[in-house]
Design a protein around this nucleic acid. Structure first.
Lengths: 160, 160
DNA sequence: TATAAAGTCGACTGAAATGATCGGGAATTG
DNA sequence: CAATTCCCGATCATTTCAGTCGACTTTATA
């Protein structure tokens, strides 16, 4: 399992999103500003997160991103895998040339480690992180002062 | 905790060493050949392993490397740390700018993960790997046919 | 309908890390 | 002395990472 700032940023950004989405879609420029992550970089990450259906996008003014599912069903591992694609510490992903034709001597060690890391990160979901964060910051969240758009696909104002 | 091929190579090489050192010092060129790792690269790694006192070197003809301690007391984590120096997945090693002045929201997550990985890799020692490996390969080890030098500091032939 | 706010996409880039090489040493044995 | 082996620093090529840029699409609303 690869661990880079890519995965870290993604988790941080998803947490930011999760903490704010009750006010409607969250813009990437907002996340970028609050978390000090480059907007263009976030766009890349959220492209992947969207394709993995972890977030849903709403285009146009007032748009942004929302979680595609309940925060309880999104694990940290899923987020990291979504942006950091290849999930293995073995370098030979089950098939390649560890050593000649055989699995190298330490193959099992790395694949076990990989599974270990995954299990740990998969045991933590976004909701857990939200709770932790809210405990720390005693509800400093500032609400939008304009009417937010809806995160769901149904129209915000029922007049279709 | 960083996981690169550097750490992998180091563990593989140390295991090779551990499995063969009963026949006296093991040369790096031997390890390089058997494990398909570049000799010069191994030299770099073993420089670090020696400075961390995980291995001891014997110079001159018949020389090579030996484990500096019993295989049971050398954990995989120690090997990886020795060659891959900085041991943290937090990127802000406790001090740096996670976010402004504060620890970033996911700081604890990463430091917990880091500790998790370390604990796992620290729970496995070289002897464990040796046993595993010997179970797989039914004693295919070929012995040297010349009298080996000693790994210890005392002279091999007692005539000092 | 024009405009602005947002997401979408692909190509590109600079810098760092990785993995590896090279050359010249120093120690030790025989 | 010569061969073997460790020792060490400098250097290098490639890849990956993190980030940038520019052009585009969708949508709300004035």
């Amino acid at each position: 399992m690869r661990l880079t700032t890519k995965g870290r940023f993604a988790v941080t950004a998803m947490l930011d999103l999760a903490l704010r989405q009750e006010n409607g879609p969250v813009t990437l420029s907002g996340v970028a500003e609050r978390q000090r992550i480059s907007l263009s970089y976030l766009e890349q990450l959220f492209g992947k997160l969207r394709r993995q259906e972890l977030v849903a996008s709403v285009r146009g003014p007032g748009g942004g991103y929302c979680l595609a599912r309940d925060a309880r069903t999104i694990s940290v591992a899923q987020i990291i895998i979504a942006v950091d694609e290849p999930l293995d510490a073995t370098q030979c992903g089950g098939k390649e040339n560890c050593l000649d034709e055989h699995r190298c001597m330490t193959h099992d060690l790395w694949s076990n480690l990989s599974r270990h890391m995954f299990d740990y990160l998969d045991s933590i979901n976004l909701h857990d992180l939200m709770v932790q964060q809210r405990e720390r910051n005693s509800h400093k969240v500032v609400l939008h002062d304009h009417a937010p758009r809806s995160c769901s696909t149904e129209p915000a104002s029922v007049q279709a």
